[in-house]
Nucleic acid binder design. Structure first.
Lengths: 191, 191, 191, 191
DNA sequence: CATGAATGAGGGTTCATTCAT
DNA sequence: AATGAATGAACCCTCATTCAT
């Protein structure tokens, strides 16, 4: 499985896949179309990804990675601030990433429900998530006591819903971001 | 007057479809398999549902219906109780339905993201949802002021996440149900 | 094969078939549609015609019969006239039948090239054709000497072409009828 | 640079299609059979012809082309002769082509009435037809004055009928060819 | 290593015909 | 005798994957 060299082509394929999946849905994203959009021959795709499922799994990780890096940047930038601000900054950067990369965001959502993702992929994706940091701090609350992963999931569900609404109605994006965060904050804080 | 069309077969097909979709995912649920699982010739499937998409749409509605009825039963049973209890009863019955019908629940989730559902189907499904009741009462809060759909979606996201965790770890189901409700309650109540 | 009784239903089926074939073409004329158009159950069709092909063959004969009778009427009406007039009358009545029964005409044409017609059917159809009469008289010419069936076929080909053009451009029907006849007359008469 | 697409295979498919259509009729010519007869996987057929209809349309043009080229050869060979001889040469080469390629001829006839041919195909086919030349000269007669299309059609009908008879009785082919031409000549010439 | 032609197993759907009612 | 539900073989077409070039 020694990777063929051209990293450039690999990225082109990944991008083409993201674009295709986002635009046409996974069900209408044949490898031939992805290859063409990547400016590469049909067979070439299989030199970089032995299987379509492999491509999809790598794509998911690739996109999540991208997002995490964006978030990390913001997070470290506010490392010295009080918790609420750090949390909000994190929250905003999550939503903002979705708004800034609608295609990637759409693709991730499609992949997330695709049953093409292996448990391994899912695990890796979770592992790279920096929110863990924030939540560890937040989820020391009473409601979710001892249910860290559940707290994580709830946080993400809330964030994803917020992102979806913000993406759907860009003009109200700011309001959704605010309400969503407020809701999250209330949920996770023992008053 | 020939054989009458059998409601039994229709249900067999619907059940077979639910089972197949839940177990293999929508992408791996060919009509041939569904028909076989229903104990029926493939051609028969198309007598009951002119199109695979029609089958899927009807299935979605069928399952939602099922769930809504279960919930309504609980809800009316507690009609006289104070709001918190009514809300909790609703919440529990939602989660419980998912736990009692894991296949149906999985199928619904797959369908919900399938891009096979028509806007009509989605509208019908929403119309039959009793939560509206609860939420109307709950969502008059400050956080979600004027964002009813968003509040709805957040509520559902929270409930679905809770359901997923409860389904995954049946032994802790009760705990998840409780935390989830608590979180929801905090979120939607201005203290 | 003892025919079931209702002659009425038999005719309804034949008519429905003609209409369907004329309007949608043979390739898009399923038995189910024909039966429905005849106001009869799907299965009933097969009580009157054991096979779709049987229906088609009988239909062809039925329509040809119809036409031949119309022509015979005209022909006998002019039995006493000179040859040219009799020939022209025959010619006109052939064309006119096609114009008066466009559906039947279209259906016949579709059937004629359908490869559903058995040699037997074709033979029967030819046998019932009264033109034979006229042509016997006409084809005693030098060009077609000893090639009666060829002469027949040529006559028919010419007539069918004329009919097709007359049907396509009803306003010029008269002109086509005249030119066609003139051409035919020239062909078959030794000057 | 991968295998180049083989013109050989394309022709094999075209020939297989012609053969199949000629032998079984269009209605009984599934793509699977055509592919098999061409010694090619069914999927391959669709690489060369995106649609069955495309295959059929191209086949029609291919066969007509073939015929036209044969005719043109004869026609140019007699370019210097008097009209009657040129016309007869054209006539003969048309009939002869049909006799020499009975399968192709049968296939063309089936296709011509198939409702699979697009108007474009029909137009192209007509455009490549050299008869136009002869007819332009012939149809300046009185009978068909101002009805060029009709004259064309009549000419073709006569030729096709002649071809059919010649094909059916090869031993009398010469006689049919002669009578047919004589009839045509009488029809189109004001004596 | 890259290419794209070739493959063939399905996929959804239609329809002539059978058969239980 | 009439009905129409049931059937399953075919049909056209798609696509992940292989392999000759």
């Amino acid at each position: 499985m020694a990777r063929p060299r051209s990293e450039e082509k690999r990225l082109a394929l990944l991008n083409a896949a993201a674009e295709t999946v986002a635009e046409h849905g996974l069900a209408a994203s044949p490898t031939s179309l992805i290859a063409k959009k990547a400016g590469v021959a049909e067979g070439t795709l299989f030199r970089y990804f032995p299987t379509k499922d492999d491509l999809l799994n790598e794509l998911y990780l690739h996109l999540k990675q991208d997002m995490c890096e964006a978030m990390k940047k913001h997070y470290t930038a506010t490392a010295a601030s009080p918790l609420r601000e750090r949390a909000q900054s994190l929250w905003n950067s999550y939503i903002d990433w979705g708004l800034a990369h609608p295609l990637a965001n759409k693709a991730v959502n499609q992949l997330a429900v695709s049953s093409s993702l292996t448990p391994e992929t899912l695990a890796k994706a979770q592992a790279m998530f920096p929110e863990a940091v924030a939540e560890t701090e937040l989820s020391g609350n009473q409601v979710f006591a001892g249910q860290t992963d559940f707290a994580d999931a709830v946080f993400l569900a809330l964030a994803d819903t917020t992102m979806a609404f913000a993406a759907r109605h860009p003009r109200k994006a700011k309001a959704y971001k605010a309400s969503g965060f407020e809701a999250m904050w209330k949920m996770f804080n023992d008053d």
